[in-house]
Amino acid sequence: MAKISLIVNGNAVNANIDPRTLLVQFLRENLRLTGTHVGCDTSQCGACVVHLDGKAVKSCTTLAVMADGHEVRTIEGLAADGAPLHPMQEAFREHHGLQCGFCTPGMIMTAVDLVNRKGHDLSDEVIREELEGNLCRCTGYQNIVTSIAAGAKAMAKSA
């Protein structure tokens, strides 16, 4: 077993885990943060994307023990319970950026990371290129791209 201490969504978390626990498993099973999904489990689909020290990573391919001492943000950490949605979440709602919703947490965490890196004025081409690691099997991406472009602009206003 390995003792780990990390910050998850602003809260200090201590745990004693088997070193082979994946970060996504730790978030879902130990912390019950089930907003982060397991899709392909092979680092391709992006349903498991969370932020590690502010950068988008695939939590199905990250060992929880490697996050010891670091900071993790999940979809649950974007907006507090009952508070207004994060601008990117709101944009996905407004522009119908989802159908079944399975890929949505990963899409939104990837989108927020994209805005952090490339700013608020994103072309469709850049958004599509940046979504290489996030798969959606329902929407055909059209409304996801629209949502991200709108969410990026909305984040500028709320910042």
């Binding site: 950068k55 990573v57 695939k58 990250t62 990837t110 990371d113 994209l114 290489e132 690691g133």
Partner: peptide, 9 residues
């Protein structure tokens, strides 16, 4: 290489 999340790791 890979995608943005993969490139971060």
């Amino acid at each position: 290489i890979g995608d943005p999340a993969v490139r971060h790791k």
